[in-house]
Amino acid sequence: WEITFERNGKRITVRTTDHRLLELFEKLWRNGADERELERLAEEINR
């Protein structure tokens, strides 16, 4: 799966075969987690 999240013109794409990681990322994104931390998390998930 691949999903791109966008907020205030900032886009972060997450790619993984584990839908649970996408759900976790989406919850953090929707709850306003720090964008720098989300970028780092996305990099780890995308590996």
Rank of each mutant, 00 (worst) to 15 (best):
W1N: 08
W1V: 11
W1T: 09
W1I: 11
W1G: 08
E2S: 04
E2Y: 08
E2G: 06
E2T: 08
E2M: 05
E2Q: 09
E2K: 03
E2W: 06
E2R: 03
E2N: 05
I3N: 05
I3R: 14
I3H: 13
I3F: 12
T4M: 06
T4L: 04
T4Q: 06
T4F: 04
F5S: 00
F5C: 05
F5M: 04
F5Y: 13
F5W: 06
F5I: 13
F5L: 11
E6W: 05
E6L: 07
E6M: 09
E6R: 02
E6Y: 08
E6D: 05
R7W: 06
R7T: 11
R7Y: 08
R7I: 15
R7H: 08
R7E: 02
R7C: 05
R7V: 15
N8A: 06
N8D: 11
N8V: 02
N8K: 04
N8C: 05
N8W: 02
N8Q: 05
G9C: 04
G9W: 01
G9N: 08
G9T: 02
G9F: 02
G9R: 01
G9E: 04
G9D: 06
K10Q: 09
K10D: 03
K10Y: 14
K10I: 13
K10L: 11
K10A: 06
R11S: 13
R11H: 12
R11W: 12
R11A: 13
R11L: 13
R11I: 13
R11C: 09
R11E: 11
I12N: 00
I12M: 06
I12F: 13
I12V: 07
I12P: 00
I12A: 01
I12S: 01
I12H: 05
I12Y: 14
I12D: 00
T13E: 04
T13G: 01
T13P: 01
T13I: 07
T13W: 02
T13A: 03
T13D: 02
V14S: 00
V14K: 00
V14Y: 03
V14F: 06
R15C: 04
R15I: 12
R15H: 09
R15P: 01
R15D: 02
R15N: 09
R15Q: 08
R15V: 11
T16F: 07
T16E: 01
T16I: 08
T16R: 02
T16D: 01
T16Q: 02
T17A: 13
T17Y: 11
T17D: 12
T17L: 09
T17I: 08
T17W: 10
D18P: 01
D18W: 03
D18F: 04
D18H: 06
H19N: 10
H19V: 14
H19G: 09
H19I: 15
H19Y: 14
H19R: 15
H19W: 15
R20G: 11
R20N: 12
R20M: 10
R20C: 01
R20P: 05
R20D: 11
R20V: 11
L21E: 05
L21H: 10
L21T: 06
L21D: 07
L22G: 02
L22P: 01
L22K: 07
L22D: 01
L22S: 02
L22V: 10
E23C: 11
E23S: 12
E23G: 07
E23K: 12
E23A: 14
E23Y: 08
E23N: 10
L24F: 12
L24D: 07
L24T: 09
L24I: 10
F25I: 07
F25R: 00
F25M: 04
F25H: 00
F25E: 00
F25L: 04
F25T: 00
E26F: 14
E26N: 07
E26S: 08
E26G: 04
E26V: 14
E26Q: 11
K27M: 14
K27E: 13
K27C: 07
K27P: 01
K27H: 14
K27Y: 14
K27T: 15
K27W: 12
L28M: 13
L28T: 09
L28P: 00
L28H: 09
L28Y: 09
L28K: 09
L28Q: 08
L28D: 01
W29Y: 10
W29C: 05
R30V: 13
R30S: 12
R30M: 13
R30I: 12
N31T: 08
N31Q: 14
N31C: 07
N31S: 15
N31Y: 06
N31V: 06
N31L: 10
N31G: 13
G32Q: 06
G32N: 10
G32T: 03
G32C: 03
G32V: 03
G32P: 02
G32W: 04
G32A: 04
G32M: 06
A33S: 07
A33W: 08
A33T: 13
A33P: 02
A33M: 10
A33L: 08
A33H: 10
A33C: 08
A33I: 10
D34L: 15
D34W: 10
D34A: 09
D34Q: 05
E35H: 13
E35G: 05
E35R: 03
E35N: 08
E35L: 15
R36T: 14
R36L: 15
R36F: 15
R36Y: 15
R36E: 15
R36D: 15
R36N: 14
R36H: 15
R36A: 15
R36P: 07
R36M: 14
E37S: 09
E37N: 03
E37L: 08
E37W: 07
L38G: 01
L38I: 07
L38S: 01
L38E: 00
E39T: 11
E39R: 07
E39W: 05
E39S: 09
R40Q: 14
R40I: 13
R40M: 14
R40F: 09
R40K: 13
R40E: 13
R40V: 11
R40H: 11
L41W: 09
L41K: 03
L41G: 00
L41Q: 02
A42T: 03
A42N: 02
A42P: 00
A42W: 07
A42M: 09
A42G: 02
A42H: 02
A42R: 02
A42D: 01
E43H: 08
E43Y: 08
E43R: 06
E44P: 00
E44G: 02
E44A: 10
E44T: 07
I45T: 01
I45R: 00
I45H: 01
I45S: 02
I45C: 03
I45W: 04
I45Q: 01
N46K: 04
N46F: 08
N46L: 08
N46G: 03
N46E: 09
N46H: 06
N46A: 09
R47I: 11
R47V: 13
R47K: 15
R47A: 15
R47Q: 15
R47T: 14
R47C: 06
R47P: 03
R47G: 15
